[in-house]
Nucleic acid binder design. Structure first.
Length: 495
RNA sequence: GAGUCGCUAGCUCAGUCGGUAGAGCAACUGCCUUUUAAGCAGUGGGUCCGGAGUUCAAUUCUCCGGCGACUCACCA
């Protein structure tokens, strides 16, 4: 708790003292309410006085002598309160007048309609439930327009609880996030998937190219890594005989923070035995478009000024052809690394010496292709060199059965037919180890136990990962990933 | 990690070509028994992010530092 005291806080603390002297407990243990605010309004009947009790936070107050209006807010919405001295008694009315914006109160009374036509609660009994001693940002609202909106982004992230109180969009966006996640669970469980939990602390961090966080287990005296992906554990479960599994939880990557990156982020990963990357495309299309239809009421949405149509089928285009289309470079007809480097440099893309041909192609893709991929598209057939866990194409082993989904210029998903050949997988790991030894600290580590698992036989399978935070960004039309994470990582405030 | 911008009352923001600051809302006092960004009258409230330097004088100028936003780099 902050020890910062200003006059406004002091005044409210003094009110608490006054309440206590009058025998009013400013923090009572419980209050039984009969209705949520929105529900209470639904009880209105002409010429009747339906009794309700509600509880919530006082968000506005208009005292007009011996009568007052206020708005009470709970999670369901807001309801206006009407308090009259003659109906509740002087002492109780004085308490009402002394309330501050932000106080949490219980209200018992009857539902009626004001002259202005707003269904309200006529207060008969007021109970203080929690005194708010810190002043809230004084956001006001008329016809859905906010005045003096709480705008300090730093404060909104650091004190998300305040942001949630005063910024309706923040509340709505996180409810949307919850619905998306719930919707995904339903979608997958209805298809026979089971949800599993695999280690977040791993001795060998695998399944992605990223720098991990390191932690230490004291009793075993070993270093452990926070997982960068659950992939290798989920595929061990395919070996074990679970045929449809998913995990929807956090990954941790020790990398930069940006509008699109938070060190801990939420990923859906799913794996299905006897399926392949084509199956994953169908699941992605169906799941995302169904969620949009259900939660947004439309498969079209506006994201940062662009109209995006999520209705299936989504466009499909190969990695190589997209690069050719947007950069003019045809990597399929380029034989040497030097030639690839010259081609990239000719369009202003740097290609450091240790990069291979397809890594250079990856750079060109990021630079020239990604920003153009506004409508949903499956980018297919990645080079094997960039895909150490994907199964090679049978007709062209230099490429793999893999796709990434791009929407609004962002990678939303990565999926492939899973590499289940232990010999091939071991060779790919060895290749990664060489890159690692050459200084690529994002190359993957050898995982002999994973190879061991594959040696028992993993059924052919399709798998997919979907970045949840980014998908939520799309659905709630926000430019920063921080607006989809309740408590994004910020540097601690120095004192 | 680099660059740009920002940090002034509880909140949203003005402002000071260097002479220690102002508005609206919020708060306090008074009036007001159907208001709703309520209204009217009055009052209080600030180490102007921190430190150092220049100066008679720094919130303002310079430098260093802190935190944030955005862009870039890394990445999903």
């Amino acid at each position: 708790m902050s020890d910062e005291i200003n006059d406004l806080v002091r005044q409210r603390i003094e009110k608490i003292e006054q309440y206590r002297q009058k025998g009013i407990n400013p923090y009572p243990s419980r209050y039984r309410r009969t209705h949520a605010a929105e529900q209470a309004k639904g009880e209105f009947k002409e010429n009747e006085k339906p009794q309700v009790s509600v509880a919530g936070r006082l968000r506005s107050k208009r005292v007009m002598g011996k009568a007052s209006f206020a708005h009470l807010e709970d999670q369901s919405g807001t309801v206006q309160l009407y308090a009259r001295r003659d109906d509740m008694g002087g002492e109780s009315y004085d308490l009402f007048k002394s309330l501050d914006l932000g106080d949490i109160v219980g209200i018992a009374g009857f539902v009626f309609k004001t002259n202005q036509g707003e269904i309200s609660i006529h207060v008969e009994k007021l109970t203080l439930l929690a005194k708010c001693i810190r002043p809230l940002p004084s956001v006001k609202e008329k016809d859905g327009v906010l005045f003096d909106e709480f705008a300090d982004r730093e404060m909104r992230y650091r004190q998300r609880y305040v942001d949630l109180i005063v910024t309706p969009k923040t509340r709505q966006d996180f409810i949307m996030r919850s619905r998306i996640i719930t919707g995904m669970r339903e979608f997958l469980t209805h298809r026979g998937y089971i949800e599993v939990e695999t280690p977040m602390m791993q001795a060998i961090p695998g399944g992605a190219a990223a720098r991990p966080f390191i932690t230490h287990h004291n009793a075993l005296d070993i270093d452990l890594y926070l997982r960068i992906a659950p992939e290798l554990y989920l595929k061990r479960l395919l070996v074990g005989g679970f045929e449809k599994v998913f995990e929807l939880n956090r990954n941790f990557r020790n990398e930069g923070i940006s509008t699109r990156h938070n060190p801990e982020f939420t990923m859906l990963e799913l794996y299905e035995a006897y399926a392949d990357y084509e199956t994953m495309m169908q699941i992605a299309e169906e799941m995302v478009s169904e969620l949009a239809a259900k939660l947004l009421g439309s498969m079209k949405l506006e994201y940062q000024g662009s109209m995006i149509d999520l209705a299936p089928p989504w466009q499909r285009a190969s990695f190589v052809e997209l690069i050719k289309k947007y950069s003019g470079i045809d990597f399929a007809s380029i034989a040497s690394v030097d030639e690839a480097r010259r081609a990239a440099e000719s369009i202003g893309i740097k290609a450091p010496g240790k990069m291979g041909k397809w890594e250079i192609a990856g750079e060109v893709f990021e630079e020239k292709v990604e920003p153009n991929l506004v409508q949903p598209v499956f980018v297919t057939d990645y080079p094997r060199e960039l895909s150490p866990l994907s199964k090679s194409r049978e007709d062209d082993p230099d490429f793999v059965e893999r796709f990434e989904i791009f929407i609004a210029g962002r990678e939303m998903s990565n999926a492939f037919s899973e590499l289940n050949d232990p010999f091939d997988q071991k060779a790919r790991f060895e290749d990664q180890v060489r890159k690692r030894e050459a200084g690529d600290d994002e190359a993957q580590m050898m995982d002999y136990d994973y190879i061991n698992a594959l040696e028992y036989g993993m059924p052919p399978a399709g798998g997919m990962g979907i970045g949840i935070d980014r998908l939520v960004m799309l659905f709630v039309d926000t430019a920063s990933i921080k607006d989809t994470i309740l408590f994004p990582l910020l540097r601690p405030e120095g004192k």
